[in-house]
Computed example of a mutant assay.
Amino acid sequence: MTPRPAPSTTAARRTPATVALRVRAMLATVLVTALVTGCSVRLETPSPSEPEPDSREVARRAAVTDALDVAELARVLLVETGTEEPPGPELARTVDAAAVHLEALGGVYDSGLVDPDGGEDVAVAPTSTPTSSPGAPEPEPSTTEVAGDPATEDLAELVERLSQGYSRSRGSLVTVPEAGLARLVASIGTAQLAQARTIAAAAGIPITPVDLPTTPTVPAELPGVPAGTLVPLVALEDAAGYAFEVVAARVGSEAERVAASARADVHRDRAQAWAVAAGVAGTTSDPRATVYALPPEVLSGEGATAHLGTLELGLADAYGTLLGSVAEDDRVAAADLLTDSYLSARTWGAAPLFFPGMPEQRD
């Protein structure tokens, strides 16, 4: 019988325990390699990039940039002209307004990221926004030409920037998703347009027309807005119309008489339009009255125009509030009524406001 060869030493050592030890050694090697490689990958990963701004942030940054541009130019002009003579006081208020607007908007966006050169990225330029509302005709090219000293040319540039800021604000209203920001943007734009007109009048320079209708009209309907929200507008507009009619019969200036009478017609027409939109025209729910109480100064003719300015400010507040409750497509109509009321208030002697149409932000 042939003897069986003895098993080799190597085969004898291939026990389950030995195999397990070898597998664990191999896994350890793989893990170490993966860790080293992973560290290398993380070191080579690009730096975090700036997040893409949404429509809210686009509108906010555009308004911030307009405020910064206006403040910078107005401050330079203020140093050149001083505050004693026009338009010095107007320039000083423009600087103050820009600072307040900038704060309300949240200031310049700081991402906190580090740029490739190692410096902090402290500001991000805004994405451009449309300067007019969808469907509106393109504004005419600027025809403002001012010949003369550099200060006058800079004033014309400031007026132009303020007007453009208004147009950008108006055009962004349909894209801003947040009603609160839409109200703020509309209010700031309205203030900027009023500042542009005031500075232009004080400096005797022309102003480029903006895409604000000469006489904004009441929308035929406002989907989603309850009638109870519109009924107070009926009473406010009708009371304003009555007051303007009384003043038109008492003021001494022919020009003021004509202007007050024309404005009375505007308010009466809007009262009727709101009554129809609310569904209360000709019903017992119609809040319009035949006569409205007026302060003594209006009846006496002394200080009558100041009361008209107060009434227009009240309407601006009402339309600013309405803007926050209408659909995005109806915001421009509400904003136009806000702007028209505030500009009329300034015409009739009301003091300038930083935030027209926003009584909660009253300065």
Rank of each mutant, 00 (worst) to 15 (best):
A74G: 03
E103S: 13
G38F: 10
H101V: 00
D69R: 02
L102I: 03
V36F: 08
R75H: 08
V108L: 06
V64Y: 05
A74N: 01
G119V: 13
G118T: 06
T45F: 04
L77D: 02
S49V: 14
L27M: 13
C39F: 09
P86N: 10
L102Y: 04
D96A: 14
G82Y: 02
P51V: 11
A34K: 03
L27F: 10
A74S: 09
R93H: 09
T83W: 00
L113R: 14
S111T: 15
R56P: 01
S55Y: 05
D121P: 03
G38T: 08
A63E: 02
L31V: 12
A92D: 07
A20Q: 11
L27V: 15
H101N: 03
V100F: 01
V19K: 14
V23F: 06
V122Q: 11
E90F: 05
A17V: 10
L102Q: 04
A63R: 05
V108C: 02
V76W: 03
V58L: 06
L91E: 01
L78P: 00
H101Y: 05
V124R: 13
R24F: 12
C39N: 09
L78R: 10
G38Y: 07
D69P: 00
V30L: 15
A34M: 09
P16L: 12
L91M: 05
R75K: 10
V114A: 09
L73W: 01
L31M: 11
P48C: 00
E50M: 12
V100G: 05
P116G: 02
A99V: 07
E52I: 15
L77I: 05
A99D: 11
